[in-house]
Design a protein around this nucleic acid. Sequence first.
DNA 1: CTAGAAGTTGAACTTAACTTCAAGTCAAGG
DNA 2: CCTTGACTTGAAGTTAAGTTCAACTTCTAG
Lengths: 144, 144
Amino acid sequence: MLLTIGEVAARAGVAPSTLRYYEREGLIEADRSDGGQRRYPREVLRRIAFVRAAQRVGLSLDEVRDALDSLPHARTPTAADWSRLSRSWRPRLDARIAELQRLRDGLDACIGCGCLSLKVCQLSNPNDVAAALGSGPRWLLEDD
Amino acid sequence: MLLTIGEVAARAGVAPSTLRYYEREGLIEADRSDGGQRRYPREVLRRIAFVRAAQRVGLSLDEVRDALDSLPHARTPTAADWSRLSRSWRPRLDARIAELQRLRDGLDACIGCGCLSLKVCQLSNPNDVAAALGSGPRWLLEDD
DNA sequence: CTAGAAGTTGAACTTAACTTCAAGTCAAGG
DNA sequence: CCTTGACTTGAAGTTAAGTTCAACTTCTAG
């Protein structure tokens, strides 16, 4: 019925020390056995899955804690609850993907023309600042 | 002709302390004035741009140093040199973009059906392990 | 020539996300 | 009952990528 820390660790693919750390950080909770050892309900696996997924999206554990805190405290979270949380990742995910794609496209252009302009190249221009500059395809070299 | 640390910092968009740190780490070098202050040739700007771009791709400074060490020591690096280095990022960039897209797609599916399966959902399945399992569209809930 | 801004150094501090350690306790199979 | 593997705690250590500090020096505009 309840899982030991080792079982949860194995199933979730994290180290036991990580689970203790997550507990200290308020991300998960655990019941205790008579002898004082942690005993986890299965639900904790979903919580941990959420944490790891959120990390891959780029959230810090602080942000994850805030998100988890917004789950209903009284009842077991429903599908809709989890869905609401992960929906909020969407913009970040989109933004991050777009940034990397810009970087990749700039990289393609740079490889094509052999330049690396500090002003124009996507490689040195995170935020499209160069878009306004009427970039020619002279990208990887010649700054100034 | 040569730039002070403050000028380089302003142009490159990093703190002076960062430039000193990069120097300690062997990423950049500086000449010195008669009084011992750092004086940078313009080329350092491209090097720094490369470092920042590489970081956005996800490389550690250790990896960046290795890459920079592979530049010709004797002559000023050419466009082709820089192009070669940044070309090597391409696979990582592709992989990272693909991962985030998988995550986003899984997220869409999860939002659609309201599930979060540990076995099937992209959110908890970084590496497509679930692909073999004939995933129905029941993703965000019900593990086991 | 001089004031004040900018630069120098080494050492220590910071943050996130964990891991490791030591010394001791619990749980379960034989 | 006993052994052995798993678990407990608090404290300290780790890594990356910087930042901050104090005490001091150099540069430059007037």
